[in-house]
Design a protein around this nucleic acid. Structure first.
Length: 335
DNA sequence: ATTCTCACA
DNA sequence: TGTGAGTA
Protein backbone atom coordinates (compact mmCIF):
# COMPACT_ATOMS: atom_id res chain seq x y z
CA UNK A 1 0.00 0.00 0.00
CA UNK A 2 1.27 3.44 -0.90
CA UNK A 3 1.46 6.41 1.38
CA UNK A 4 -1.75 8.12 0.40
CA UNK A 5 -3.95 5.14 1.10
CA UNK A 6 -2.16 4.56 4.39
CA UNK A 7 -2.73 8.21 5.32
CA UNK A 8 -6.40 7.89 4.41
CA UNK A 9 -6.86 4.77 6.51
CA UNK A 10 -5.18 6.40 9.50
CA UNK A 11 -6.84 9.75 9.13
CA UNK A 12 -3.58 11.70 9.04
CA UNK A 13 -1.69 13.48 6.27
CA UNK A 14 0.81 11.70 4.08
CA UNK A 15 3.23 14.40 5.11
CA UNK A 16 2.85 13.45 8.75
CA UNK A 17 3.71 9.83 7.94
CA UNK A 18 6.92 10.98 6.24
CA UNK A 19 7.59 13.12 9.26
CA UNK A 20 7.30 10.11 11.59
CA UNK A 21 9.65 8.22 9.33
CA UNK A 22 12.12 11.10 9.45
CA UNK A 23 11.97 10.96 13.24
CA UNK A 24 12.69 7.25 13.21
CA UNK A 25 9.31 6.00 14.42
CA UNK A 26 8.70 3.88 11.34
CA UNK A 27 10.82 2.46 8.55
CA UNK A 28 8.60 1.41 5.64
CA UNK A 29 10.19 -0.44 2.78
CA UNK A 30 10.56 1.14 -0.64
CA UNK A 31 9.58 -0.33 -3.96
CA UNK A 32 12.68 -0.91 -6.02
CA UNK A 33 11.29 0.34 -9.32
CA UNK A 34 9.40 3.44 -8.21
CA UNK A 35 11.14 4.32 -4.98
CA UNK A 36 7.67 4.72 -3.43
CA UNK A 37 7.14 3.76 0.23
CA UNK A 38 5.24 0.53 0.67
CA UNK A 39 3.28 -0.08 3.86
CA UNK A 40 2.52 -3.53 5.22
CA UNK A 41 -0.35 -4.27 7.61
CA UNK A 42 2.27 -4.56 10.35
CA UNK A 43 3.39 -1.03 9.68
CA UNK A 44 -0.15 0.24 9.58
CA UNK A 45 -0.69 -1.31 12.98
CA UNK A 46 2.41 0.45 14.26
CA UNK A 47 1.22 3.74 12.83
CA UNK A 48 -2.13 3.28 14.56
CA UNK A 49 -0.30 3.01 17.87
CA UNK A 50 1.68 6.12 17.07
CA UNK A 51 -1.44 8.06 16.19
CA UNK A 52 -3.20 6.92 19.35
CA UNK A 53 -0.29 7.86 21.60
CA UNK A 54 0.06 11.16 19.77
CA UNK A 55 -3.61 11.92 20.38
CA UNK A 56 -3.13 11.33 24.07
CA UNK A 57 -0.49 14.03 23.99
CA UNK A 58 2.70 12.01 24.11
CA UNK A 59 5.65 13.63 22.35
CA UNK A 60 7.13 12.08 19.23
CA UNK A 61 10.40 11.36 21.04
CA UNK A 62 8.44 9.82 23.90
CA UNK A 63 6.62 7.57 21.47
CA UNK A 64 9.92 6.58 19.94
CA UNK A 65 11.31 5.51 23.31
CA UNK A 66 8.12 3.68 24.20
CA UNK A 67 8.04 1.74 20.95
CA UNK A 68 11.65 0.74 21.30
CA UNK A 69 10.96 -0.68 24.72
CA UNK A 70 7.90 -2.54 23.55
CA UNK A 71 10.05 -4.16 20.88
CA UNK A 72 12.37 -5.36 23.59
CA UNK A 73 9.38 -6.87 25.34
CA UNK A 74 9.38 -4.49 28.26
CA UNK A 75 5.67 -3.96 28.50
CA UNK A 76 5.67 -2.29 31.87
CA UNK A 77 7.72 0.50 30.40
CA UNK A 78 4.92 1.32 28.02
CA UNK A 79 2.51 1.00 30.90
CA UNK A 80 4.58 3.52 32.77
CA UNK A 81 4.56 5.92 29.82
CA UNK A 82 0.81 5.67 29.59
CA UNK A 83 0.38 6.22 33.31
CA UNK A 84 2.68 9.19 33.16
CA UNK A 85 0.75 10.51 30.21
CA UNK A 86 -2.45 10.11 32.15
CA UNK A 87 -1.18 12.14 35.04
CA UNK A 88 0.00 14.90 32.72
CA UNK A 89 -3.41 14.97 31.07
CA UNK A 90 -5.06 15.09 34.46
CA UNK A 91 -2.92 18.03 35.51
CA UNK A 92 -3.84 19.78 32.30
CA UNK A 93 -7.51 19.14 33.00
CA UNK A 94 -7.25 20.62 36.48
CA UNK A 95 -5.57 23.68 35.02
CA UNK A 96 -8.30 24.10 32.46
CA UNK A 97 -10.86 23.82 35.17
CA UNK A 98 -9.15 26.50 37.17
CA UNK A 99 -9.09 28.81 34.15
CA UNK A 100 -12.78 28.13 33.74
CA UNK A 101 -13.42 29.05 37.36
CA UNK A 102 -11.44 32.25 36.99
CA UNK A 103 -13.42 33.15 33.90
CA UNK A 104 -16.71 32.46 35.65
CA UNK A 105 -15.57 34.61 38.52
CA UNK A 106 -14.71 37.44 36.13
CA UNK A 107 -18.09 37.14 34.43
CA UNK A 108 -19.68 37.36 37.86
CA UNK A 109 -17.70 40.46 38.70
CA UNK A 110 -18.68 42.12 35.46
CA UNK A 111 -22.36 41.36 35.93
CA UNK A 112 -22.32 42.63 39.47
CA UNK A 113 -20.79 46.00 38.76
CA UNK A 114 -21.49 48.91 36.49
CA UNK A 115 -17.95 49.79 35.59
CA UNK A 116 -15.05 47.53 34.81
CA UNK A 117 -13.64 46.06 38.02
CA UNK A 118 -10.12 46.19 36.67
CA UNK A 119 -8.39 45.72 39.98
CA UNK A 120 -10.32 42.55 40.70
CA UNK A 121 -9.54 41.30 37.25
CA UNK A 122 -5.91 41.95 37.78
CA UNK A 123 -5.88 40.15 41.11
CA UNK A 124 -7.72 37.14 39.69
CA UNK A 125 -5.35 36.90 36.78
CA UNK A 126 -2.37 37.10 39.10
CA UNK A 127 -3.71 34.36 41.37
CA UNK A 128 -4.46 32.18 38.42
CA UNK A 129 -0.99 32.59 36.97
CA UNK A 130 0.61 31.92 40.31
CA UNK A 131 -1.23 28.65 40.73
CA UNK A 132 -0.27 27.59 37.24
CA UNK A 133 3.39 28.30 37.94
CA UNK A 134 3.28 26.33 41.18
CA UNK A 135 1.71 23.36 39.44
CA UNK A 136 4.32 23.49 36.76
CA UNK A 137 6.85 22.59 39.33
CA UNK A 138 10.31 21.67 38.21
CA UNK A 139 10.25 19.00 35.59
CA UNK A 140 9.79 16.05 37.81
CA UNK A 141 8.06 14.39 34.90
CA UNK A 142 11.37 13.98 33.22
CA UNK A 143 12.04 10.25 33.05
CA UNK A 144 15.69 10.58 33.90
CA UNK A 145 14.98 12.49 37.06
CA UNK A 146 12.52 9.93 38.33
CA UNK A 147 15.39 7.76 39.43
CA UNK A 148 17.04 10.53 41.43
CA UNK A 149 13.78 11.54 43.10
CA UNK A 150 13.52 7.90 44.05
CA UNK A 151 16.90 8.13 45.74
CA UNK A 152 15.91 11.29 47.56
CA UNK A 153 13.03 9.49 49.09
CA UNK A 154 14.55 6.13 49.76
CA UNK A 155 15.39 7.13 53.30
CA UNK A 156 11.72 6.81 54.12
CA UNK A 157 12.00 3.03 53.82
CA UNK A 158 11.34 0.72 56.72
CA UNK A 159 14.55 0.94 58.66
CA UNK A 160 15.57 4.51 58.13
CA UNK A 161 14.11 6.89 60.66
CA UNK A 162 13.47 6.49 64.38
CA UNK A 163 9.82 7.04 65.09
CA UNK A 164 8.87 6.31 61.50
CA UNK A 165 6.68 3.34 62.24
CA UNK A 166 5.12 5.02 65.29
CA UNK A 167 4.24 8.04 63.20
CA UNK A 168 2.45 5.83 60.71
CA UNK A 169 0.60 3.98 63.45
CA UNK A 170 -0.50 7.22 65.08
CA UNK A 171 -1.77 8.39 61.71
CA UNK A 172 -3.95 5.30 61.47
CA UNK A 173 -5.23 5.88 65.01
CA UNK A 174 -6.12 9.47 64.23
CA UNK A 175 -8.03 8.57 61.10
CA UNK A 176 -9.53 5.50 62.78
CA UNK A 177 -10.75 3.95 59.54
CA UNK A 178 -13.93 1.91 59.47
CA UNK A 179 -13.70 -1.32 57.47
CA UNK A 180 -14.71 -0.65 53.87
CA UNK A 181 -13.88 3.04 53.96
CA UNK A 182 -11.93 4.36 51.00
CA UNK A 183 -8.65 6.14 51.57
CA UNK A 184 -5.93 7.85 49.60
CA UNK A 185 -2.25 7.90 50.53
CA UNK A 186 -0.34 10.68 48.81
CA UNK A 187 3.37 10.17 48.31
CA UNK A 188 2.75 6.58 49.24
CA UNK A 189 6.25 5.40 48.31
CA UNK A 190 6.39 1.69 48.90
CA UNK A 191 2.96 1.77 50.49
CA UNK A 192 3.92 1.37 54.14
CA UNK A 193 1.22 3.69 55.47
CA UNK A 194 -1.41 2.43 53.08
CA UNK A 195 -0.57 -1.11 54.17
CA UNK A 196 -1.40 -0.30 57.78
CA UNK A 197 -4.75 1.10 56.70
CA UNK A 198 -5.51 -2.01 54.69
CA UNK A 199 -4.83 -4.12 57.77
CA UNK A 200 -7.74 -2.21 59.27
CA UNK A 201 -9.97 -3.10 56.35
CA UNK A 202 -9.78 0.14 54.42
CA UNK A 203 -9.74 0.19 50.63
CA UNK A 204 -6.58 2.05 49.74
CA UNK A 205 -5.34 4.04 46.80
CA UNK A 206 -1.83 5.42 46.56
CA UNK A 207 -0.17 8.13 44.52
CA UNK A 208 3.54 8.56 44.02
CA UNK A 209 5.71 10.21 41.43
CA UNK A 210 8.28 7.44 41.32
CA UNK A 211 7.59 4.43 39.16
CA UNK A 212 10.20 2.43 41.06
CA UNK A 213 8.37 3.08 44.29
CA UNK A 214 5.06 2.18 42.70
CA UNK A 215 6.46 -1.05 41.36
CA UNK A 216 7.60 -2.12 44.80
CA UNK A 217 4.34 -0.90 46.28
CA UNK A 218 2.26 -2.94 43.84
CA UNK A 219 4.20 -6.09 44.52
CA UNK A 220 3.90 -5.59 48.28
CA UNK A 221 0.20 -4.76 48.17
CA UNK A 222 -1.58 -6.28 45.18
CA UNK A 223 -4.92 -5.22 46.62
CA UNK A 224 -4.04 -1.56 46.44
CA UNK A 225 -4.50 0.80 43.51
CA UNK A 226 -1.33 2.80 42.87
CA UNK A 227 -1.11 5.66 40.40
CA UNK A 228 1.60 7.97 39.21
CA UNK A 229 0.90 11.54 40.20
CA UNK A 230 1.70 14.25 42.68
CA UNK A 231 0.29 16.46 45.38
CA UNK A 232 -0.52 19.35 43.10
CA UNK A 233 -2.54 17.38 40.61
CA UNK A 234 -4.05 14.44 42.42
CA UNK A 235 -5.18 11.98 39.72
CA UNK A 236 -8.63 11.35 41.14
CA UNK A 237 -12.02 12.93 40.62
CA UNK A 238 -13.79 14.99 43.26
CA UNK A 239 -15.36 13.71 46.47
CA UNK A 240 -14.14 10.10 46.33
CA UNK A 241 -12.40 9.47 49.61
CA UNK A 242 -13.38 9.07 53.22
CA UNK A 243 -9.88 10.08 54.18
CA UNK A 244 -6.65 11.35 52.67
CA UNK A 245 -3.33 10.77 54.40
CA UNK A 246 0.29 11.52 53.71
CA UNK A 247 3.44 10.70 55.62
CA UNK A 248 6.98 11.95 55.31
CA UNK A 249 6.27 13.71 52.07
CA UNK A 250 4.55 17.01 52.71
CA UNK A 251 7.72 18.74 53.80
CA UNK A 252 9.08 18.43 50.26
CA UNK A 253 6.67 21.14 49.18
CA UNK A 254 7.09 24.86 49.59
CA UNK A 255 4.52 26.72 51.65
CA UNK A 256 2.47 27.79 48.65
CA UNK A 257 2.63 24.35 47.14
CA UNK A 258 1.38 22.98 50.46
CA UNK A 259 -1.67 25.23 50.20
CA UNK A 260 -2.33 24.02 46.71
CA UNK A 261 -1.85 20.43 47.87
CA UNK A 262 -4.38 20.98 50.68
CA UNK A 263 -6.85 22.25 48.08
CA UNK A 264 -6.32 19.07 46.12
CA UNK A 265 -6.75 16.91 49.21
CA UNK A 266 -9.97 18.69 50.05
CA UNK A 267 -11.18 18.36 46.48
CA UNK A 268 -10.98 14.56 46.38
CA UNK A 269 -12.42 14.22 49.88
CA UNK A 270 -16.04 13.33 50.65
CA UNK A 271 -18.12 15.97 52.47
CA UNK A 272 -17.22 14.72 55.95
CA UNK A 273 -13.80 13.38 55.08
CA UNK A 274 -10.68 13.40 57.21
CA UNK A 275 -7.13 14.40 56.52
CA UNK A 276 -3.94 13.40 58.34
CA UNK A 277 -0.45 14.65 57.60
CA UNK A 278 2.48 13.06 59.37
CA UNK A 279 6.19 13.65 59.29
CA UNK A 280 8.46 16.64 59.42
CA UNK A 281 6.63 19.88 59.29
CA UNK A 282 8.60 22.64 57.77
CA UNK A 283 8.30 26.35 58.07
CA UNK A 284 9.41 27.09 54.61
CA UNK A 285 9.69 30.54 53.22
CA UNK A 286 8.50 30.29 49.67
CA UNK A 287 10.86 29.75 46.82
CA UNK A 288 12.91 27.12 48.55
CA UNK A 289 12.05 23.82 46.97
CA UNK A 290 14.00 21.53 49.21
CA UNK A 291 12.30 21.73 52.52
CA UNK A 292 14.54 19.27 54.28
CA UNK A 293 16.99 22.01 55.14
CA UNK A 294 14.24 23.90 56.90
CA UNK A 295 12.95 21.34 59.31
CA UNK A 296 11.81 23.04 62.42
CA UNK A 297 11.50 21.85 65.97
CA UNK A 298 8.85 24.41 66.68
CA UNK A 299 5.24 23.29 66.62
CA UNK A 300 4.37 26.74 65.36
CA UNK A 301 5.93 25.68 62.09
CA UNK A 302 2.91 23.49 61.63
CA UNK A 303 0.55 26.39 62.08
CA UNK A 304 1.66 27.85 58.78
CA UNK A 305 -0.51 25.38 56.94
CA UNK A 306 -2.82 24.46 59.81
CA UNK A 307 -4.17 27.98 59.27
CA UNK A 308 -5.57 26.71 56.02
CA UNK A 309 -7.99 24.28 57.63
CA UNK A 310 -10.22 26.58 59.64
CA UNK A 311 -11.35 28.88 56.85
CA UNK A 312 -12.02 25.82 54.70
CA UNK A 313 -14.43 24.22 57.08
CA UNK A 314 -12.14 21.80 58.85
CA UNK A 315 -11.68 21.10 62.51
CA UNK A 316 -7.99 20.54 62.94
CA UNK A 317 -5.27 19.84 65.44
CA UNK A 318 -1.55 19.23 65.49
CA UNK A 319 0.19 16.67 67.66
CA UNK A 320 3.87 16.57 68.40
CA UNK A 321 5.02 12.96 68.14
CA UNK A 322 8.70 13.52 68.86
CA UNK A 323 11.10 16.46 68.80
CA UNK A 324 11.01 16.35 65.04
CA UNK A 325 7.82 14.60 64.07
CA UNK A 326 4.32 15.99 63.89
CA UNK A 327 0.87 14.80 63.04
CA UNK A 328 -1.73 17.20 61.73
CA UNK A 329 -5.27 15.87 61.67
CA UNK A 330 -8.41 17.49 60.33
CA UNK A 331 -12.04 16.61 59.89
CA UNK A 332 -14.45 18.44 57.67
CA UNK A 333 -17.79 19.36 59.16
CA UNK A 334 -21.16 19.17 57.44
CA UNK A 335 -21.28 21.37 54.38
C1' DA B 1 1.32 9.87 -7.67
C1' DT B 2 5.22 10.21 -5.07
C1' DT B 3 9.93 11.84 -3.24
C1' DC B 4 13.01 15.13 -1.45
C1' DT B 5 14.47 19.57 0.38
C1' DC B 6 13.81 24.11 2.15
C1' DA B 7 11.55 27.49 4.48
C1' DC B 8 8.07 28.64 7.99
C1' DA B 9 5.12 28.86 12.16
C1' DT C 1 5.18 19.17 15.57
C1' DG C 2 4.23 19.42 11.73
C1' DT C 3 2.85 22.04 6.90
C1' DG C 4 3.24 23.95 2.08
C1' DA C 5 5.72 25.05 -2.15
C1' DG C 6 8.59 23.79 -5.66
C1' DT C 7 11.06 20.06 -8.03
C1' DA C 8 12.27 15.91 -10.38
Amino acid sequence: MHIKEAAKRLGISARAIRFYEEKGLIAPGKELSSGYRSFTEQEIWRLRTIVALRESGMSVSGIQAALEQVERGEHDELLHYLELQRSVLYARMLETRQTLQTTDHMIGLLQGSRGLPLEDFYRLAQDSREVRELRNWEDRWNFDELASSHDERVWSGDSAYPGYREALERTVEEINPAPGETGLDLGTGTGNLAGLFMERGAVMNGVDQSKEMLRICRSKFPGMTAKIGNFLAVPYTDGQFDFVVTSFAFHHLSGRQQKLALNEMARVLKPQGRIAIAGFINRNADGGASADKHRTNSPTGALDFLDWFGPNGFESKCLKLSPELYLAAARRGLP
